[in-house]
Amino acid sequence: MQKLASLLLILVATIFSFGAYAEDGDIVDNYAYYGFEPDLITNYISTGKKLGFVRIGIELMVKDPEDLVDLEHHDPLLRAAILEIMGSQTADKVKSLTGREEIRRECYDTVNRLIEQETGKAIIVNLLFTKYLYD
């Protein structure tokens, strides 16, 4: 059993060591993801008497895993900016696919601008909605 575990460990280490390089020896980007925990929950502008809310899970994609430290440090700033954007949306925009993409893009642009102001570099490659629930 130990031999099998050792063999698996060696195999995994070998795969990961070769995975960081392209065939010609160039270093390939080593993407990492930062997830906001817990999910972001806020109200949005709704018509009528019913209060609308949205719950979203967000992952930020970065090229270098070392950038995750900066994202963790600035988590409250980024979270507040996203909540502000979500809270200013209309029900129609929140509930439509095109509106959802516009919101995602606005969140990406804002978060990238803020992190660039704080760290001096734009480290976020993409912003992904991993959960998007509304009522």
Rank of each mutant, 00 (worst) to 15 (best):
A22R: 02
A22D: 07
E23T: 15
D24N: 15
G25P: 02
G25M: 03
D26V: 09
I27M: 06
I27V: 10
I27E: 05
V28C: 08
V28M: 13
V28W: 03
D29G: 07
D29I: 04
Y31R: 02
Y31L: 07
G35A: 05
G35D: 15
F36A: 08
F36C: 05
F36W: 04
P38K: 12
D39T: 09
D39K: 15
D39S: 06
L40M: 08
L40Y: 05
I41Y: 10
I41C: 13
I41T: 15
Y44K: 04
I45V: 13
S46H: 11
T47K: 11
T47Q: 10
G48D: 04
K49I: 13
K49W: 10
K49M: 12
K50Y: 08
L51V: 13
G52T: 14
G52N: 12
G52Q: 03
F53N: 08
I58C: 06
I58G: 07
E59C: 12
E59R: 13
E59W: 14
L60K: 05
L60W: 12
M61P: 11
V62K: 00
D64K: 08
D64V: 01
P65T: 06
P65E: 10
D67C: 04
D67T: 08
L68Q: 00
L68D: 01
V69E: 00
V69W: 00
D70H: 02
D70W: 03
D70L: 09
L71F: 00
E72R: 13
E72L: 11
H73Y: 10
H73P: 00
H74N: 12
D75N: 14
D75I: 03
P76E: 12
P76N: 11
L77Y: 07
L77K: 11
L78W: 02
L78G: 03
A80I: 14
A80R: 09
I82F: 10
I82R: 12
I82T: 07
L83F: 08
L83G: 08
L83P: 02
E84L: 04
E84I: 08
I85A: 06
I85W: 08
G87M: 01
G87R: 03
G87K: 06
S88P: 06
